[in-house]
Amino acid sequence: MEKVLEINHLTKTFGKLTAVNDLSFSVEKGNVYGLLGPNGSGKSTTLGMILDVVNPTHGDWRWFGQEHSTDSLKKVGAIIERPNFYPYLSAGKNLEIVAQIKGAHPSKIDEKLKIVGLLERKKDKFSTFSLGMKQRLAIAAALLNDPHVLILDEPTNGLDPQGIIQIREIILQIASQGTTIILASHLLDEVEKVCSHVVILERGKTLYSGRVDEMTASFGYFELSSSDNDKLNEVLNSMNYFEKIVQNGNQLKGILREDLSAESLNRLLFERGIVLNHLVKRRESLEQQFLQITQNKN
């Protein structure tokens, strides 16, 4: 896969505070990357450096294979602060100003307003917009020059549930058209629902970088029960497939150490005289995996 961004040993210190500590990862074209971590973990500082807003202490990065190129940044759209438009101008007029600055054709305005669901509000003043609408207008502005990469810093911060869903749907729509997206967030749910890849940061350090669905080596777990859970527990513990068996109410939770299908497990247990009345295979949620990673690194 083509790499649109390569970050190598990026470090930023503010006096005695190390905001970003030897950060390295790459972003491949066409994916949605989540920078995940609590406030103060270095997400915004990292975005500031790769956008040439914050000077790094050490390290470097490359956009599209070019180091510190102004031309490369023209291919990047970004929202790293609260939407800031002229309050008494309409959405359309505000985007006309942005289009002139970016050298984008005015015909792009209606196209981008449609993507973010604001075409019908084109003539309405920015001051009448809700927070969610302001954020969607900012996304439209960032898209005016058809960037190859879109960077969003906490795009759903402060929004109500409906606004969060709208932003999430817009992000997925933009990604489906081939735009690479880098999304900074402290919300696990947001990253899990929209991102294909995740970089977990804590105190400026990388705890994990890779695909969301490959965050751990976990093969998932089974929830299961029978009319005789004591016998079921004994048999499961005798199998090498399981890391451990945990009592969970009226059910047992079998955490896998290697891959095993539900069909195979059901057959193996039946051969040992156990008939299951409940069998579900699950993968650990991003939250569970995140907790495991952060606990293991501390």
Rank of each mutant, 00 (worst) to 15 (best):
V194H: 04
Q177P: 02
G163Q: 05
P38R: 07
A140T: 00
Y208I: 11
N248P: 01
E169G: 06
C195T: 10
G254I: 00
A140D: 01
F242G: 01
F219V: 02
D60M: 03
N84M: 15
S41L: 13
W61Q: 09
E202P: 11
I245H: 11
E120K: 00
V191W: 03
R211Q: 13
G249L: 06
P38G: 03
V199L: 07
I115V: 14
E67C: 05
A184T: 09
S261V: 09
D124W: 04
G158Q: 05
A262C: 10
L73D: 14
D146A: 11
K93E: 08
L150R: 00
L187E: 10
Q288M: 04
M49V: 13
F219E: 02
D230Y: 11
L152W: 02
G77H: 13
G204A: 10
K123L: 13
L159M: 11
S107A: 11
R272E: 11
I151R: 12
M239Q: 12
E96K: 13
N266I: 00
L187D: 09
E154D: 11
E284R: 09
T13N: 12
I151F: 10
V54S: 04
K134Y: 01
S225Q: 06
D110Y: 01
G273E: 04
Q166R: 14
M239E: 03
G117I: 00
I139N: 14
N237T: 13
L201A: 09
S226A: 15
P38W: 12
D228S: 02
V116H: 03
D189T: 08
K43H: 02
S130L: 01
H197D: 08
L36M: 13
L187I: 08
F222M: 01
K3Q: 11
E28S: 13
I165Q: 13
D153Y: 13
F25V: 14
S72E: 09
D60V: 05
K3M: 13
P83H: 14
D230C: 07
L188H: 08
I97F: 08
L23Y: 08
G158S: 02
H278G: 05
G210P: 10
E284A: 12
P38I: 04
A19V: 09
A19C: 12
D230H: 15
L144C: 11
I165T: 04
G249A: 08
L183A: 08
F290V: 15
E67M: 10
P56G: 06
Y86H: 14
K102W: 03
T128Q: 12
E258W: 01
I293T: 05
W63M: 12
S90G: 03
M133R: 01
T11S: 11
